[in-house]
Computed example of a mutant assay.
Amino acid sequence: MAEVLDFIDESLQYESTWERAEDHERRFGADLEYYGASVGAVRGSIRNAGRRYPGLDHDDVTALASALWSTPVYERRLAAVVLLQSASGLLRHSDLTRIEGFIRSAALHDLVDALAVDVVGSLLQRLAGQEAVRASAVVARWAGADEPLLRRAAVLAHLPAYRSGNGDDDAFRRTIRSISGVQRSRVPEVEEAIALVRSSGAP
Protein backbone atom coordinates (compact mmCIF):
# COMPACT_ATOMS: atom_id res chain seq x y z
CA MET A 1 0.00 0.00 0.00
CA ALA A 2 2.92 2.35 0.58
CA GLU A 3 3.60 2.53 -3.16
CA VAL A 4 -0.03 3.39 -3.97
CA LEU A 5 -0.13 5.94 -1.15
CA ASP A 6 3.04 7.62 -2.41
CA PHE A 7 1.68 7.70 -5.95
CA ILE A 8 -1.52 9.46 -4.86
CA ASP A 9 0.25 11.88 -2.54
CA GLU A 10 2.82 12.83 -5.17
CA SER A 11 0.06 13.31 -7.74
CA LEU A 12 -1.83 15.63 -5.41
CA GLN A 13 1.24 17.72 -4.67
CA TYR A 14 2.18 17.89 -8.36
CA GLU A 15 -1.28 19.29 -9.19
CA SER A 16 -1.21 21.87 -6.38
CA THR A 17 -0.71 25.63 -6.39
CA TRP A 18 -0.01 27.92 -3.48
CA GLU A 19 -2.78 30.26 -4.66
CA ARG A 20 -5.35 27.50 -4.40
CA ALA A 21 -3.94 26.42 -1.03
CA GLU A 22 -4.44 29.93 0.31
CA ASP A 23 -7.96 30.05 -1.15
CA HIS A 24 -8.82 26.72 0.52
CA GLU A 25 -7.58 28.00 3.86
CA ARG A 26 -9.70 31.14 3.53
CA ARG A 27 -12.77 29.04 2.67
CA PHE A 28 -12.34 26.15 5.09
CA GLY A 29 -10.22 27.53 7.93
CA ALA A 30 -6.94 26.50 9.49
CA ASP A 31 -8.01 23.20 11.08
CA LEU A 32 -6.35 21.30 8.23
CA GLU A 33 -3.36 21.86 5.97
CA TYR A 34 -3.81 22.32 2.22
CA TYR A 35 -1.75 21.28 -0.78
CA GLY A 36 -3.80 23.42 -3.14
CA ALA A 37 -5.03 20.73 -5.55
CA SER A 38 -8.45 21.03 -7.21
CA VAL A 39 -11.30 18.59 -6.66
CA GLY A 40 -10.83 17.45 -10.24
CA ALA A 41 -7.16 16.73 -9.55
CA VAL A 42 -8.08 14.72 -6.46
CA ARG A 43 -10.56 12.63 -8.43
CA GLY A 44 -8.04 12.22 -11.22
CA SER A 45 -5.37 11.02 -8.80
CA ILE A 46 -7.65 8.29 -7.46
CA ARG A 47 -8.74 7.32 -10.98
CA ASN A 48 -5.14 7.10 -12.16
CA ALA A 49 -4.14 5.09 -9.11
CA GLY A 50 -6.91 2.61 -9.89
CA ARG A 51 -5.58 2.19 -13.42
CA ARG A 52 -1.98 1.87 -12.31
CA TYR A 53 -2.72 -0.51 -9.43
CA PRO A 54 -5.75 -2.57 -10.52
CA GLY A 55 -7.33 -5.26 -8.41
CA LEU A 56 -7.33 -3.53 -5.03
CA ASP A 57 -9.53 -5.58 -2.71
CA HIS A 58 -11.59 -4.55 0.32
CA ASP A 59 -8.68 -4.64 2.76
CA ASP A 60 -6.44 -2.72 0.35
CA VAL A 61 -9.02 0.01 -0.15
CA THR A 62 -9.85 0.48 3.53
CA ALA A 63 -6.19 0.44 4.57
CA LEU A 64 -5.34 2.98 1.87
CA ALA A 65 -8.25 5.21 2.92
CA SER A 66 -7.01 5.15 6.52
CA ALA A 67 -3.46 5.94 5.43
CA LEU A 68 -4.65 8.91 3.35
CA TRP A 69 -6.84 10.18 6.19
CA SER A 70 -4.13 9.85 8.84
CA THR A 71 -2.36 13.02 7.66
CA PRO A 72 -4.47 16.15 8.32
CA VAL A 73 -4.25 17.51 4.78
CA TYR A 74 -7.53 18.41 3.08
CA GLU A 75 -6.68 16.92 -0.31
CA ARG A 76 -5.51 13.63 1.20
CA ARG A 77 -8.70 13.31 3.21
CA LEU A 78 -10.81 14.21 0.20
CA ALA A 79 -8.89 11.55 -1.75
CA ALA A 80 -9.83 9.02 0.95
CA VAL A 81 -13.49 9.93 0.49
CA VAL A 82 -13.24 9.67 -3.31
CA LEU A 83 -11.52 6.30 -2.93
CA LEU A 84 -14.35 4.99 -0.76
CA GLN A 85 -16.91 6.38 -3.21
CA SER A 86 -15.20 4.64 -6.13
CA ALA A 87 -15.03 1.33 -4.26
CA SER A 88 -18.41 1.52 -2.55
CA GLY A 89 -19.38 -1.91 -3.81
CA LEU A 90 -16.63 -3.46 -1.69
CA LEU A 91 -17.67 -1.85 1.59
CA ARG A 92 -19.35 -3.70 4.45
CA HIS A 93 -21.36 -2.68 7.49
CA SER A 94 -18.25 -3.26 9.62
CA ASP A 95 -16.50 -0.42 7.78
CA LEU A 96 -18.79 2.06 9.50
CA THR A 97 -16.53 1.95 12.56
CA ARG A 98 -13.65 3.27 10.46
CA ILE A 99 -15.90 5.85 8.82
CA GLU A 100 -17.12 7.00 12.23
CA GLY A 101 -13.52 7.76 13.15
CA PHE A 102 -13.15 9.76 9.94
CA ILE A 103 -16.27 11.78 10.69
CA ARG A 104 -15.20 12.54 14.26
CA SER A 105 -11.87 13.92 13.02
CA ALA A 106 -13.07 15.46 9.76
CA ALA A 107 -13.14 19.09 10.98
CA LEU A 108 -14.90 20.19 7.76
CA HIS A 109 -18.56 19.84 6.84
CA ASP A 110 -17.60 19.21 3.22
CA LEU A 111 -15.78 16.00 4.16
CA VAL A 112 -18.51 14.88 6.56
CA ASP A 113 -21.23 15.48 3.99
CA ALA A 114 -19.43 13.55 1.27
CA LEU A 115 -18.87 10.62 3.63
CA ALA A 116 -22.45 10.67 4.91
CA VAL A 117 -24.21 10.98 1.55
CA ASP A 118 -21.95 9.33 -1.00
CA VAL A 119 -20.42 6.60 1.16
CA VAL A 120 -22.71 5.83 4.12
CA GLY A 121 -26.00 6.66 2.40
CA SER A 122 -25.06 4.62 -0.64
CA LEU A 123 -23.97 1.72 1.56
CA LEU A 124 -27.31 1.72 3.40
CA GLN A 125 -29.15 1.53 0.08
CA ARG A 126 -27.04 -1.37 -1.18
CA LEU A 127 -26.95 -3.65 1.87
CA ALA A 128 -29.61 -6.25 2.56
CA GLY A 129 -30.58 -8.64 5.33
CA GLN A 130 -28.61 -8.65 8.57
CA GLU A 131 -25.89 -6.45 7.04
CA ALA A 132 -28.51 -3.75 6.44
CA VAL A 133 -29.94 -4.12 9.95
CA ARG A 134 -26.51 -3.81 11.55
CA ALA A 135 -25.51 -0.85 9.43
CA SER A 136 -28.77 0.97 10.21
CA ALA A 137 -28.20 0.35 13.92
CA VAL A 138 -24.77 1.96 13.75
CA VAL A 139 -26.06 5.05 11.96
CA ALA A 140 -28.99 5.26 14.40
CA ARG A 141 -26.47 5.35 17.26
CA TRP A 142 -24.73 8.28 15.60
CA ALA A 143 -27.96 10.28 15.87
CA GLY A 144 -27.63 10.23 19.66
CA ALA A 145 -23.87 10.77 19.76
CA ASP A 146 -22.07 13.51 21.64
CA GLU A 147 -20.41 14.74 18.43
CA PRO A 148 -22.55 17.11 16.31
CA LEU A 149 -20.79 16.03 13.12
CA LEU A 150 -21.91 12.44 13.74
CA ARG A 151 -25.48 13.64 14.25
CA ARG A 152 -25.22 15.58 11.00
CA ALA A 153 -23.94 12.45 9.25
CA ALA A 154 -26.78 10.36 10.67
CA VAL A 155 -29.28 12.77 9.14
CA LEU A 156 -27.57 13.12 5.77
CA ALA A 157 -27.24 9.34 5.40
CA HIS A 158 -30.99 9.37 4.68
CA LEU A 159 -30.59 11.74 1.72
CA PRO A 160 -29.76 9.26 -1.09
CA ALA A 161 -32.81 7.15 -0.28
CA TYR A 162 -35.12 10.17 -0.38
CA ARG A 163 -33.54 11.41 -3.59
CA SER A 164 -34.23 8.04 -5.20
CA GLY A 165 -37.81 7.96 -3.90
CA ASN A 166 -37.15 5.20 -1.34
CA GLY A 167 -36.88 7.17 1.88
CA ASP A 168 -37.88 5.45 5.12
CA ASP A 169 -40.08 7.93 7.02
CA ASP A 170 -40.13 5.87 10.22
CA ALA A 171 -36.35 5.59 10.29
CA PHE A 172 -35.95 9.32 9.67
CA ARG A 173 -38.39 10.14 12.48
CA ARG A 174 -36.39 7.88 14.83
CA THR A 175 -33.25 9.77 13.85
CA ILE A 176 -34.89 13.09 14.69
CA ARG A 177 -36.14 11.77 18.05
CA SER A 178 -32.65 10.55 18.94
CA ILE A 179 -31.18 13.93 18.07
CA SER A 180 -33.83 15.70 20.12
CA GLY A 181 -32.88 13.53 23.08
CA VAL A 182 -29.28 14.80 23.16
CA GLN A 183 -29.60 18.37 21.86
CA ARG A 184 -30.62 20.89 24.47
CA SER A 185 -30.71 23.66 21.86
CA ARG A 186 -30.51 23.96 18.09
CA VAL A 187 -27.15 23.06 16.57
CA PRO A 188 -26.82 24.86 13.22
CA GLU A 189 -24.92 22.14 11.36
CA VAL A 190 -27.46 19.51 12.42
CA GLU A 191 -30.52 21.68 11.76
CA GLU A 192 -29.17 22.52 8.30
CA ALA A 193 -28.85 18.81 7.50
CA ILE A 194 -32.40 18.11 8.69
CA ALA A 195 -33.76 20.92 6.50
CA LEU A 196 -31.89 19.55 3.49
CA VAL A 197 -33.30 16.03 3.88
CA ARG A 198 -36.79 17.40 4.46
CA SER A 199 -36.52 19.42 1.26
CA SER A 200 -36.01 16.07 -0.50
CA GLY A 201 -39.26 14.64 0.84
CA ALA A 202 -38.62 13.55 4.43
CA PRO A 203 -41.36 14.28 7.00
Rank of each mutant, 00 (worst) to 15 (best):
E147A: 12
P188N: 11
L84H: 07
S178H: 14
E15F: 10
E19G: 05
V61N: 04
V197K: 06
P160Q: 08
I179H: 03
A153G: 07
E191R: 11
A137T: 11
F102T: 02
F7R: 11
P203G: 03
D57K: 12
A80D: 04
S122C: 08
I179D: 04
R152D: 01
L127K: 13
D168Y: 01
W69C: 06
G55N: 09
E192K: 12
G50T: 09
E33S: 10
E191D: 10
Q125V: 04
L156Y: 00
I194V: 11
L68I: 08
L64W: 00
A137M: 12
Q85E: 15
V133W: 08
V4P: 03
I8P: 07
A202I: 01
S45T: 11
R20A: 02
R51H: 10
S94V: 12
G89T: 05
L159G: 02
Y74K: 01
A202G: 06
H109W: 11
D31A: 09
R198G: 10
A106W: 04
G29D: 01
A106V: 02
A157Q: 06
L96H: 01
F28V: 03
A128T: 15
L108D: 05
A137V: 05
A202H: 03
A143L: 06
V81D: 02
G89Q: 09
S200E: 14
D60G: 03
W69Q: 05
A128H: 15
E100K: 14
I46D: 05
A193Y: 03
W18Y: 10
R92Y: 13
S70E: 14
Q130Y: 12
L156E: 00
S66E: 14
A140Q: 14
I99L: 08
R27N: 04
A143E: 02
A41E: 09
Y14R: 15
E33K: 12
A153D: 01
H93T: 14
F172Y: 07
G50L: 11
A87D: 13
S136Y: 14
A145W: 06
S164A: 15
S66R: 15
I99D: 05
V139W: 01
V42A: 07
H93P: 10
R163S: 02
V4N: 05
R163K: 14
R126N: 06
S45D: 03
L68F: 03
R163M: 07
I99R: 11
R92G: 05
S185I: 09
D170C: 00
L108P: 02
Y34W: 08
R163V: 05
Y74H: 02
I46E: 12
R26D: 04
E22R: 13
A157D: 01
R126L: 09
V182P: 00
A154V: 04
A114S: 10
D23N: 10
L127P: 01
Q130E: 15
R98L: 09
S136E: 15
A195V: 08
A65Y: 08
Y14S: 11
Q125N: 13
V155K: 09
R198I: 06
L149G: 02
S94P: 01
V155H: 07
T97R: 12
L90D: 00
Y74A: 04
D169R: 14
E147N: 14
R20Q: 09
A107C: 08
A67V: 08
L83V: 09
R177Y: 14
D169N: 12
D170S: 13
S199Q: 12
L84I: 06
R77N: 07
Y53L: 05
S122G: 13
G101Q: 06
E25R: 13
Q130N: 13
D169H: 15
L150I: 06
G121D: 02
G29M: 05
